[in-house]
Amino acid sequence: MPPALALYQPDIAKNAGTLARAAACLAVPLHIIEPAGFPVGDAGFRRAGMDYLDRAAIRRHSSFAAFESWRRSEGRRLVLCTTRGSQPYTGFAFAAGDLLLLGRESAGVPDAVHGAADARIVIPLAPGARSLNVALAGAMILGEALRQVGAWPAAPAG
């Protein structure tokens, strides 16, 4: 089972659409924890996801409590990607089935969600830099997780 992306109440349709496209192209599931700040059928979401959205395995959860209940029943680890993390993502040991949780662009995640995470990782930034775009950060961390667990999609022959 590959790692999966999870978006906590995403604010910006284009970022969520970009991550849905990445999930489709890399054959990983995408979980959207509602409420989102836009309808999932939003034009910006569809434009960013392009024609890949039909190939994306997107699962919507009505709330964090619903997501957390599902996650615990699956026995999966929750890895929060946060500017408040203490461990650089490149030094973290990812495992198959990890759920990589990205917070809202405007506010991250609340303390209760932060506390529910099994691990909190960060992308080290240059002094004075606050954060990266959530879609870029998600793609960087997902790439490292896939590399570590050997879960890249099969390349075409030839």
Rank of each mutant, 00 (worst) to 15 (best):
G103L: 00
G44T: 00
I32D: 07
T18F: 12
A48P: 00
M50G: 06
R47L: 12
V79T: 05
G49L: 07
E68A: 15
S131F: 01
G115M: 11
G17Y: 07
P88K: 09
D51N: 10
A116K: 07
H31N: 08
A116Q: 12
A155M: 14
Q87T: 15
G158S: 04
G108K: 01
D118P: 03
A36T: 10
G85N: 04
D11F: 02
I123K: 01
V109P: 00
A139S: 14
I58K: 08
D42W: 02
A56T: 13
S62N: 07
P3W: 07
E74C: 15
A16H: 05
A24N: 11
R120K: 14
A137T: 07
G37L: 05
Y52A: 12
A23V: 13
L102Y: 04
G44D: 15
A107P: 06
D54A: 13
A20P: 10
H61T: 10
M140C: 15
A20H: 10
N15W: 09
T82P: 02
L101I: 06
F64C: 02
A135M: 01
T82Q: 05
P127M: 06
A126L: 14
I141L: 15
P88G: 03
S86P: 02
G75D: 14
A27D: 15
D11L: 02
E105R: 04
W152I: 02
D98G: 13
A116N: 08
I141K: 04
R84A: 14
E105S: 04
F94S: 07
L7T: 01
R46F: 06
A126V: 13
L142H: 02
G85R: 03
I58F: 12
A112V: 12
L30D: 13
A48R: 01
G143Q: 14
P153E: 14
H114Y: 14
D54H: 12
C25P: 09
L101D: 03
K14C: 09
P39D: 14
A135C: 03
A151Y: 07
H31Q: 04
G143K: 08
A66Y: 11
G37C: 01
P35G: 05
P156M: 07
I141F: 09
R47M: 09
T18H: 13
L53V: 15
G143F: 13
P2S: 14
A112F: 11
R76I: 02
I123S: 01
R21S: 11
Q87S: 13
A135G: 08
P10D: 02
R55M: 12
P124K: 00
D42F: 01
M1L: 11
